[in-house]
């Protein structure tokens, strides 16, 4: 169970997010730009949370997770390119596509562990990045505009800023709840158990490989959904989202929020994107400063924002 403090922070944050469009467009503030900004933050929150699901709970240090973000945008973009704009169909393709690719890549990479796993997930994700660049039909490395956003209901037009925003917020809430349920289910116990000691899990009778593979696929699909939203929000398809740099950023978000805390990465994504924005405003060479900051964070603030709050939630329940 979450501590009272964490639960209040979480509910409070969601309430703020829910109220944000009204506030941002009110006459007093009048900064509709914030709606778009927070929509992006929430999308990366979903992606980072899905990474934490395998990284923090399953000890699978996937260094290619942004791949699924990119695949999601390609699913929307490619179908829109061929004028298949039915949102449900796009969603189906997005989910089955990311699940299939995560399954194949998991099958290859989960045979290994440690440094090998990191390098292989890294290289395989990069392979898709290069594939995206070589696909001239979809704009190569320039990318491709997505002309039409997904169409779900006639009364729910995603071209309306608010509809887009609340779709993203809704997905975030649902994804967080579902992943939280999974982590505490029997399945989640197996994934978490193999985190601390895989040989032990096998000795008590769990064929852990298939459970780890399933977790890998779940994380890929959730991240793919984030990509689906990202493609719709930015109305642009580009291999850049699959680049390893993005995967590294997702890992930073997880760490800044707190590894193995599920909700921490929501705040990690917020903190990282704000920090990037702040530094980029302040200097052209923001990475020059951010690099050393990152090293210091790793060395001295590893528990992350969520981890700094009192009360542990991932153990001893009831």
């Amino acid at each position: 169970m979450l501590s009272k403090l964490k639960l209040s922070i979480l509910i409070g944050s969601f309430l703020i997010l829910a109220a944000l469009p009204m506030v941002a467009e009110s006459e007093m503030i009048d900064e509709p730009f914030y709606i778009d900004l927070m929509a992006r933050v929430m999308i990366f929150s979903i992606a980072a949370m899905s990474l934490d699901f395998i990284l923090g709970y399953g000890a699978m240090i996937s260094f290619g997770h942004a791949l699924y973000l990119g695949l999601g945008t390609y699913a929307v973009g490619i179908m829109a390119h061929y004028e298949l704009t039915n949102g449900w169909m796009q969603l189906l393709v997005c989910i089955s596509g990311t699940a299939f690719i995560a399954f194949i890549l998991g099958l290859i990479s989960l045979r290994t562990s440690g440094i090998y796993f990191i390098m292989i997930t890294f290289a395989l994700a990069q392979m898709f990045y290069f594939l995206g660049i070589s696909l001239e039909a979809f704009g190569g490395d320039d990318g491709l505009p997505i002309d039409t956003r997904s169409e779900f209901f006639s009364f729910f037009d995603l071209n309306e800023t608010w509809n887009m925003y609340y779709l993203i917020l809704g997905t975030l809430v649902v994804a967080a709840l579902v992943l939280w349920k999974i982590i505490n289910s029997r399945f989640g116990m197996v994934v978490r158990g193999s985190h601390s000691n895989d040989a032990r899990m096998q000795a008590i009778g769990f064929p852990t490989f298939k459970y780890r593979l399933a977790a890998f696929v779940i994380a890929g699909v959730v991240c793919g959904l984030a990509g689906f939203l990202l493609g719709n929000l930015t109305e642009f398809l580009t291999p850049e989202y699959m680049h390893w740099f993005r995967s590294g950023e997702l890992m930073i978000m997880v760490m800044v929020g707190g590894m193995g805390t599920l909700f921490g990465p929501l705040f990690g994504a917020f903190a990282y994107l704000m920090m990037e924005d702040f530094l980029a405003n302040f200097t052209e060479y923001w990475q020059f400063y951010f690099g050393p900051i990152l090293i210091l964070l790793v060395l001295f603030a590893k528990q992350g924002l969520w981890g700094m709050l009192p009360g542990k939630e991932d153990i001893s329940d009831e």
Partner: peptide
């Protein structure tokens, strides 16, 4: 440190050197 820390810290080095 564990591999996760090594990945992130050396990622920080890349950012630093590239800039």
């Amino acid at each position: 440190r564990d591999h996760m820390d090594q990945v992130l810290a050396t990622f920080g080095l890349i950012l630093f050197f590239n800039e």
